[in-house]
Structures are given as structure tokens and as C-alpha cells.
Simulated scan of single mutants.
Amino acid sequence: MRQLHYTPALGAAYGVEVLSFAQLRKMDGAGARTRPQRPDFHVLALVTSGRGAHVADFETYLLREGSVVWIRPGMVHRWSDVDRVQGPLILFRPGFPPDLGPTLAWDLCAPVSWHLPPQAQPLARLAADHLRREHAVREPRPASPALLSHLLAALLLRVLPADTPTAGGGRDRDVFHRYRAAVEEHFTEWHQVADYARVMGYDRRTLTRAARAATGVGAKEFLDQRILLEAKRLLAHTDLPVSRCAQRLGFLDAANFTTFFQRGTGWPPSTWRTADARATRPS
């Protein structure tokens, strides 16, 4: 696996880089884009023409005009088929855009890819082009990071799914947001909902109700899904033995980890890892 770190181009010492699929193909003659990579930065893509496919965290997404892809730091992905895809690619560091207000833009459960309705596509393209043009300004003086960050924020707000909740959601949503943040911080240590309930000051039923209202699954299943996703990432994109993967994820021994993984996927971890084709692996 390629671990990608944010390295801005010469003369672009900002927290954002504006490219295109055409530039990606030109820079990547060896086809590294089709192999799994795990960036520590955000990747936002807007497809303006063409068709293709993209794989993120073991799910395949078909791309067409109006498709949006948002890869968040830590995800594993590959541009499996973008030879005929056109459109802008924006790379940016976490924390570079300003606060976007009460949106789910930074929601870890938000979709990876979606399709903009026809009436929204021209405005999204305009926002992307404005950011691109400003990013390219070098004379009489370079564009400021503050200006670029606000233009990026405008683009993000333009491309968010129309049905993304933008405010509140009541007590259950607030509880779930806290639970989700705690899970993200501690899932390699705490594998029981009771651990989170105790620290957060809620009972298990409250966390289960909040998680189900927000995601459709209970608190325990939400936690297990997060652990399972990281297990897949480690198995597919590192050379760590199964026992070390188990340790990384907080399991006391490899046998417990194998039982957990097989219950979640139907496959033991070693078999899942060595499957001949990624397409044969359960998602």
C-alpha cells in the first residue's frame, strides 16, 4: 500500500492543491493510481465528463458526469478506472477550510460518492473553477491562504448532498455525534458499548437508540463495523501478520480476532487477505 502524505507543489505552500484527472494521468504514467493508497489528507473530485469507477474502503463506486467523490484522511482507495474521466481534483489538509457551520461535511459516516442533480452541477463547476483560478495566481501577488480556504469551503458546501442534514437532529443526534467521536478515538482499546457509556455518562440504551436513529444500526454494531473496517485496511494494505493486526486493534489474542473477523465477513482474516482477486472479497 502507498501511504500518501500531503506535499504541495513548488510555489503552492498552502493547505490546498488543485489538480485535474488529466494532470493525474499525466503525472502517473506507471498507473500507481490504480493501486491502493491511504492518504493523510482529503481528496475531493468532481466529474465533469466521462465514465469510470473508483474503489474506497472495499466498495466500488461508478463515476459519471456530476459524480462527487470525497476521500477522507485514513481511508484506503484507488482510482480503478479514470482513464476517460475529466474534472477537478482538490487535495487539502485537515483543518484548512474554515468552520462550515452546522453541516455533516466532516461526518465520518457521510457517503464517499454521490451524484449532483443537473441544476447543481454548473454552480459546483463554477466554484471549482474559481478555486482553481485563484490557486494559480502568482502575480502581482499570490492568493492568500485565507482566501483559498474560503473558496474551498464554498465548493464543499456546493457539492454536499442535497439531503445532508444541516442542523441539529435533536438530542439523539447530539448523543450520537459524541459517541461517534469517542469510538473514533478509542475503538482500538474499547470494544464494549458499556465502556463508552460509562465515560460519556449515558446508559447503553441511550447510545443504542441514538446510533440507530442516526445510522440504522445499534451502538454495538456501529462499533463493530468501525473495528472491522480498520481490520480490513490493515490486512489488505500492510504486511503485518494477523497476530500483529489483532494487537493493533486491541484484541488479547489472534484467536479472538479471527472469530470476530470471520463473524463479520464470513472469512477468516488470512483467507480474506490472500484472496486472488479483490472482487471476490466480501465488502
Results as ranks from 00 to 15, higher is better:
6 Y>F: 15
9 A>L: 11
9 A>G: 13
13 A>W: 00
13 A>H: 06
13 A>P: 05
13 A>M: 09
15 G>R: 13
24 L>R: 14
25 R>C: 03
26 K>A: 15
26 K>Q: 15
27 M>K: 14
35 R>Q: 12
37 Q>C: 12
46 L>R: 00
48 T>L: 05
52 G>A: 05
54 H>I: 10
57 D>M: 03
60 T>L: 06
63 L>S: 05
64 R>N: 09
66 G>S: 07
69 V>N: 04
73 P>L: 03
75 M>P: 00
75 M>A: 15
76 V>C: 12
80 S>I: 01
81 D>K: 13
84 R>E: 13
88 P>H: 01
90 I>H: 02
92 F>D: 02
100 L>P: 07
110 A>G: 14
114 W>V: 02
114 W>R: 08
120 A>G: 05
121 Q>I: 10
132 R>P: 00
134 E>W: 03
135 H>Y: 15
135 H>T: 07
139 E>D: 12
141 R>G: 08
144 S>G: 08
147 L>S: 14
147 L>M: 06
148 L>I: 06
148 L>C: 04
151 L>F: 09
154 A>Q: 11
155 L>F: 08
156 L>S: 02
157 L>A: 11
160 L>S: 06
166 T>I: 04
167 A>W: 03
168 G>L: 12
169 G>D: 13
171 R>F: 02
173 R>P: 00
174 D>K: 14
178 R>Q: 14
180 R>P: 02
181 A>E: 13
183 V>L: 04
185 E>H: 10
186 H>L: 04
189 E>S: 09
193 V>I: 10
197 A>D: 04
202 Y>R: 09
202 Y>P: 01
204 R>E: 14
205 R>P: 00
209 R>C: 04
211 A>V: 01
214 A>E: 12
215 T>K: 05
218 G>F: 03
218 G>S: 07
219 A>N: 05
223 L>C: 10
225 Q>F: 06
235 L>S: 08
237 H>M: 06
237 H>S: 07
238 T>R: 05
241 P>L: 11
246 A>P: 05
255 A>W: 08
259 T>V: 11
262 Q>G: 05
266 G>H: 07
267 W>P: 01
271 T>D: 14
274 T>Y: 11
274 T>I: 03
275 A>H: 03
279 A>W: 04
279 A>N: 04
280 T>G: 10
281 R>I: 05
282 P>V: 05
